[in-house]
Every structure is written in C-alpha cells, then in structure tokens.
C-alpha cells in the first residue's frame, strides 16, 4: 500500500523520532511510505484557539499535498492532528473556503488515519513483530479516545509486543491538561491536571509512558522531567518500531522525547 506520511509540525520539528519510527514501522510491514515534502501543519492550533480564517492556507496546503490519488491512505502519528483533519478542516473549508477546497478536504478526510487505526482497521495487523522488554503504561489521549474513537486499538497493538510488561494507568482516560494553548491560557488549571496525571504514571512504576500523540507526551514528559520521576515518554510508534534486530535502547529519563 502507498501511504502518505504526515509528520505534523510538532513531530517534524521537535519529535522526529516518533515520525521516523512511524516510517520505519510501515516500511517494515511492507508498505511504501511517501513523504510529500511540501507538507507543513494541519492548523489544529489555530482552530482550537479560535482562528478559522488564518488556517485556510494550511488546510489548502494539506489537501494539496495529500490529495494525490496515488496515495491509498494518509497516516499521522497524532490523534489530535488526525482529528483536526477529519473534523475541523471541513468546518474551515465550509466557512472560509471555496468549492475546490471543500472537495479537496472531503477527499483527503476519507483516507486519513491515526497510526493505530491504520494498522488495525486498514492494514489488519495487531502483531507488528515488535520487541520491547520494558514496563510500559499507556495514556489514551483525549482526541484519540473521544474524537477518533480509536477504542482499545493501541492497547491491542501493545499487548502483541514481545517482551512488554504492560501495566494499566489509573484513571487513564483523564485528560493530562495539555489542550494546546489551554496549557498557556489556563496554566494553573492545566498544571493541576498534569500533576494528577504524573502521579498516576509514577504509581505504575513504568519505565515508559506511551501515547499516540507527541503533544500530550511533551506535556506529560515535561511534568515527569520536572519532578525527576524516572519514567520516560515514548510515542507508541517508537515501541512498535523496536525489534530484536533493531532494538530501541531506553533513553535517559530527562531527555523526555
């Protein structure tokens, strides 16, 4: 299958390891990973902060970059960016776009997937041949859980990982408090939510806290790093990409990424 990879602006710039892992994983599974070089950002931050005119060129660029009919699917290692493409691009296009943009957005939306959806629903795999002999706890990010409804797909993928010691995160479905610009505009409330999340992560004794979204992991990892919790954050893709042949050594906890 020919799969367009959207790195996301955050992944491309700050968390490239998660995107590399996505590319490696899909390539290992026998697929052709295509990186349209003109891609930038989905505009989620704009829309969630209240701006719908400003991201029109971003939405258009996304539709242009991934509209290529030779791409069978578009994948991104981010539940919230996939949510933006599937739920918000239409709103922006309807309100401030033209007919061509609306058509482009609709076409791309139909083939856009978050990583665990692509693996389980489209590619039909749960055992991706990964090996990761560490204690891991999984945080289901809000947009994966409640916007995309990925359900337990990420957990099914993790359970199939060889050697993994998967431990349940208490109150897993609670928001970590990130919420994009919410973490800045309501920093105190966000920090109170984060504190409960990092307490729960710490209570699992996990080596690694994983999730399907680098933005939430940046938040949780930033909190864990500040309190020197000893638990690292890794994107789900990084665990699924690790094998016996190409193992992923555990990074230092402080280098939360």
């Amino acid at each position: 299958m020919r799969i367009g990879l959207f790195a996301t602006c955050l992944g491309d710039t700050l968390f490239p390891d998660a995107v590399k892992a996505t590319a490696v994983l899909l390539t290992r599974l026998g697929h052709d990973v295509v990186f349209p070089p003109g891609q930038t950002c989905c505009g989620q931050m704009h829309v969630n902060t209240g701006y719908q005119r400003e991201p029109v060129p971003l939405v258009r660029n996304f539709a242009d970059q991934f509209g290529d009919p030779s791409l069978d699917a578009v994948v991104m290692p981010s539940g919230s960016c996939a949510g933006s493409v599937r739920h918000q691009h239409e709103i922006v296009a309807d309100r401030y776009g033209d007919e061509a943009l609306r058509a482009g957005v609709a076409a791309v939306k139909a083939k856009t997937y978050e990583l665990s959806e692509l693996l389980v629903d489209v590619l039909g795999v749960t055992d991706v041949g990964a090996w990761f002999p560490h204690r891991v706890t999984y945080h289901p990010t809000c947009h994966s859980l409640r916007m995309l409804r990925v359900g337990d797909k990420p957990l099914r993928l993790l359970r199939a990982v060889d050697g993994i010691d998967l431990v349940e995160l208490p109150q897993a479905d609670a928001c970590c408090g990130f919420g994009g610009t919410f973490a800045l505009k309501n920093a105190g409330t966000s920090a109170a939510m984060l504190q409960d999340k990092t307490d729960h992560v710490r209570s699992t004794g996990a080596d690694v806290c994983t999730a399907g979204d680098s933005s939430c992991l940046m938040h949780i990892g930033g909190g864990l790093s500040r309190i020197k919790a000893g638990t690292r954050t890794l994107h789900l893709a990084q665990i699924l990409a690790a094998t016996r042949t190409a193992p992923l050594p555990l990074p230092q906890p402080e280098a939360a990424r």
Binding site: D12, T13, A187, S190, G221, G222, R257
Partner: peptide, 19 residues
C-alpha cells in the same frame, strides 16, 4: 506558564524532513 511546572525538550539535532 508552561515552564512554571513543566520542562521542554530542546529542539533535536535534525528535523524529520531532513532525516
């Protein structure tokens, strides 16, 4: 507001697109 209670990782050596 972010760094009051969270760290931020430094940008990596290389972006994904350059890799």
């Amino acid at each position: 507001g972010w760094t009051d209670s969270r760290d931020l990782p430094a940008p990596p050596r290389q972006t994904f697109r350059s890799w």
